[in-house]
Design a protein around this nucleic acid. Structure first.
Lengths: 339, 339
DNA sequence: CTGAAAGCGCTTACAG
DNA sequence: CTGAAAGCGCTTACAG
């Protein structure tokens, strides 16, 4: 069996309570004792048992990270590792560990979240997505568990801490940019409409059109469910419209390149015939042909702040709800041309 | 406070021991009692406290996943999410959770591993990489902690469970393939030489040349440290050799496309002037120009088996050491041409 | 400044 | 088939 606080106590001729206090660096313990105990701990190779410690202090020093079902392309999407990197960095700073959801379906994940929170495996939760009518968020909201969301919650918006980009504004800016280049028929290929980010961007898209007195044409919208990947079919439909688009906005660089490949198959040149603009600024996008104009949404920062927000709530349940907007920036490269 | 086994016991008029046995579905408890207890558990919304449970059974039902320093590009590399997806899937099947390392430097990670294993936060460890002289692996090997490695360990190879591709064989096959196409000057752009996978592939590369009676020219080798990304400089050097390569093998698709972009900047056409072949089969590689010939190394399966191996060891410390080789397959696309 | 004792929420021989 | 009791390895009032 591993060596315990009792063993150390015996070897150092003090009580277990004293050893515990030395670990906690309690100021009421004399420096002499501390020194002695620390030495024996080191000599014996003692490491505190978290299970025991956590049980009595009722904390775990770990954050649960919940991603959308792993069955989908969520993992493929470079968003996930990058946001995780941000979370990881901030969590490590506060000596918090990360516990990952492993479920493959929404139901499994729901069960997991309940069991990891009720079972006191984690002190708080980061939800990596915001979806309409999400049971998990509803559960977290109703229980008293510290949590934060990457993405704007569709309900209880003012009473949940979250971090997001200004998705409406971003989409608006992007569409304005294309309009500025002379485009009038602008298609939008977005993620599933169950995601708030998709809805927000669609709203921004509509607003920009409205402002420019361009009519909104539902035929120019493709809502691609994240679980299936882009369908060649949808691209064909788009380009075979009576009045096909001269510009297409997509929600992810990888999707954009897939789209571009389908266009090329159809002998449609980008940006010669159609301009393409995207989101996420994948590391590859500056190196590929055509170099992609894309919106950098600061994914790493989204992760940092998501961790920050849940940590605030963990440290103080009464901490005020915060909503953080992370800046985005349009990077112009070679995939759009002016008409 | 949360509701405990005692509360349930009281409400169901049984002892805490009985409730515990019902949870464990102990056959010695009558069906009547079970039913009654289960109902009150449900009514009261009882969830077992893992901390307490784990403390007494001395298990955690969680696996620690250790990746190379997050400060590097490890996160960017699509390898990470995909292997994690495999691990996640297998772990979930056995009701195991995943605990992630968060450290940014090798030292931090080393400390983390010691504390998560000694502190009984995890039952076992999956090491996502195999590196020469790695302290963490040495520590795990010397302690009695169940663990598995993705990649062949450089030492104690026969006494550590690991999963890997046949990297020597893969590289050999790839080079043979290029030789078969008529290439004689074949460059190799690999990862840092501290990684066993890089060394193995280099060995396979050399073997293939030898077999074909081609001389090994160190000038054709670029060992790119994973933390920096591909350096344009190295590509230039390669192509400005007295006798530049007619084919280049790289270790990752993303690197390959970066390489190709540098080549294009130098007005060198792929595959017209130089053939390029890579590893990892990124989902995008079939859609880009040129479509990349690449080796699919079954990353997801590497994850599945890594989890399988550590679970075996967790369930039975005496379980025999296993080494699993996951098949790879060369996918021919359009980035190589015959001379 | 330090120790004895109770307790965190469970499980599991032992007894009946 | 069920319960009382001890114990997992810690922390923390309480006392001195």
């Amino acid at each position: 069996m591993a060596i315990t606080i009792k063993d150390v106590a015996k070897a150092a001729s003090v009580s277990p309570a004293t050893v515990s206090r030395v670990i906690a660096d309690n100021p009421r313990i004399s420096e002499d004792t501390k020194k002695k105990v620390r030495e024996t701990m080191k000599d014996m190779g003692y490491y505190p048992n978290f299970q025991a410690r956590n049980l009595v202090i009722q904390k775990t020093q770990t954050i649960g990270v919940i991603m959308a079902d792993s069955a989908t392309l969520a993992f493929q999407n470079p968003f996930f590792p990058e946001v995780l990197r941000g979370i990881s960095s901030r969590a490590h700073e506060s000596q918090f560990g990360l516990y990952l959801s492993t479920g493959a379906t929404p139901e499994e994940i729901y069960e997991e979240v309940i069991s990891m929170t009720q079972g006191k495996r984690v002190d708080g939760i980061i939800l990596l997505y915001s979806r309409i009518g999400d049971k998990i968020m509803e559960y977290l909201y109703n229980s008293n568990i510290p949590f934060s969301v990457v993405g704007r919650p569709d309900v209880h918006t003012d009473s949940i801490s979250y971090v997001d980009n200004d998705n409406v504004g971003n989409a608006r800016e992007v569409v304005n940019y294309l309009i500025g280049l002379g485009h009038q028929r602008i298609a939008y290929v977005g993620g599933g409409l169950e995601y708030v980010v998709s809805l927000d961007r669609l709203k921004g898209y509509q607003k920009a059109l409205e402002k420019a007195s361009l009519s909104y044409d539902p035929e120019l919208i493709v809502n691609q469910s994240i679980s299936i990947g882009l369908e060649e079919q949808s691209v064909k439909r788009l380009m075979q419209l009576q009045k096909p688009p001269t510009a297409i906005v997509t929600h992810d660089d990888l999707i954009a390149y897939e789209l571009i490949s389908y266009l090329q198959d159809m002998k449609i040149d980008v940006p010669g015939d159609v301009s393409v603009l995207s989101f996420n600024n994948h590391s590859l996008s500056e190196h590929l042909k055509p170099p992609l104009s894309t919106v950098d949404i600061s994914i790493y920062d989204l992760g940092i702040y998501a961790a920050e927000l849940v940590l605030e709530k963990i440290k103080d349940r009464e901490a005020p709800v915060r909503e953080i907007t992370v800046p985005s920036r349009l990077i112009e490269r070679g995939s759009c041309r002016s008409l």
